[in-house]
Design a protein around this nucleic acid. Structure first.
Lengths: 227, 227
DNA sequence: CCGGAACCTGACTGTATGGTCAATTTTTAC
DNA sequence: GTAAAAATTGACCATACAGTCAGGTTCCGG
């Protein structure tokens, strides 16, 4: 939850959250995620977010002091999503199963919360100034751990040797591309939007290439879950 | 070159380009690419670009009518880069060699022109409104062609069957991540910037997983060109 | 049902920024 | 060498936008 805490003022953190507050903040955050995803931090306006949330603009400033604070709250909200799902990667797990589960979960996230992915991507592209600490601590540590597990699999001969850290970069890139670069994917596929079938196909593909990267083949018949 | 021609006014295209004009436009485009890469279209300011190019702001408006026109020029400049390099993928080529060459070229571009990659990424994330036509025509056609070649390789049994179109998505994502998400990669690797060694390692990795995705192994000894 | 706290909001303001323009200097062509 | 074309530039707008605030309304414990 409170993954991000770079340099905001210490007070105001223990605000009492009433019923109304929680509801309104939720609506604002949802609208903000959408707007920031579409236009970025600079491009999205408070008025736009307010309109989408069905509130007067001054209300946003009541709940979140400034645009920057609101943006940070959106990011904060998103970051927790990024950490989850890696717990399937353990020494004792079956590599094929674990990797399949991880990639599938990532793809599910991409399909479910594309705007979250886009806000995150936008922030990172522009230098990740607001989430640098998070990336350097939590994410760095997490990757080190999981990469060690994958290396361990390799030394035991259960998978072909791979650059485990870079494998994570590749998996993230391959999955998030279906959210961040959706327009491009759609244009190339000749579709207006990505349907469930497209995402299922994408998932199968990414799982396949991930497993093959480790010298494995997908369990069960190929193309298990089309549609 | 003039890949982008969505809806700008027909005249002004055949402007006579003098010596001075060419030089100044070049400087402005270079500065603009940098600024737009760092801050996006909305975030980057004309004043900032002017300062970086060492010119008064009014000068930018003399050469490029508006901020939007300048941005389009930057994109236009970049798009041609995206099309190149696929010509190595032909029916008669050796799959391993061709794919290695293609991925290597893509990685080289990423390493050489990271700002170009970031501007492009930014545009696509935000809906690719300005380059939609390009993606739907040129890129779409190109991918269809090359995907057919890869499928052909598969039917001849020279590679394992893959989803060729999605393979392109994956290659693009995997390579561009080292430009677009450099901050994240750096944070996870615990470095301040990506050095040549890092990029060499990344290249080896992406080549490996691309080949393995097609059921191939890298030619020659692994880790050929570290450094 | 009362008093205080939380919540709401229309009408403002200051400022950053894209864009204009007329006056001047530099370049180019003959 | 000269006149026209191209290039330069400081000073100047108009607007869009984040942020403010005072005065109101609703909520809630006692």
């Amino acid at each position: 939850m409170k993954a991000l805490r770079t340099e905001s003022r210490p007070p105001a953190d223990t605000r009492p959250k009433g019923r109304v507050r929680r509801r309104q903040e939720g609506a604002i955050l949802k609208a903000a995620e959408r707007v920031f995803a579409r236009a970025g931090f600079e491009g999205g306006t408070m008025a736009e977010i307010a309109a989408l949330a069905g509130l007067p603009k001054a209300n946003l400033h009541y709940y979140f002091g400034s645009k920057d604070e609101l943006y940070r709250a959106v990011l904060d909200n998103i970051l927790s999503l990024w950490l989850a799902e890696t717990e399937v990667i353990t020494r004792d797990a079956d590599p094929a199963r674990a990797l399949t589960a991880y990639v599938t979960a990532k793809m599910h996230l991409t399909a479910t919360r594309p705007d979250a992915s886009r806000v995150f991507a936008n922030e990172v592209i522009h230098g990740a100034t607001r989430i640098g600490d998070f990336l350097r601590s939590e994410l760095h540590g997490l990757v080190a751990q999981r990469a060690a597990v994958i290396d361990h699999w390799a030394t035991e001969g259960r998978i072909a040797p791979v650059d485990a850290t870079h494998l994570f970069f590749t998996i993230w890139a391959a999955t998030q591309t279906y959210a961040d670069f959706e327009s491009q994917v759609c244009a190339v596929l000749g579709k207006a939007r990505l349907g469930q079938a497209d995402l299922a196909r994408a998932t199968t593909h990414v799982v396949t290439i991930t497993l093959r990267s480790c010298g494995l083949e997908p369990a069960g018949p190929p193309h298990t879950s089309l549609q």
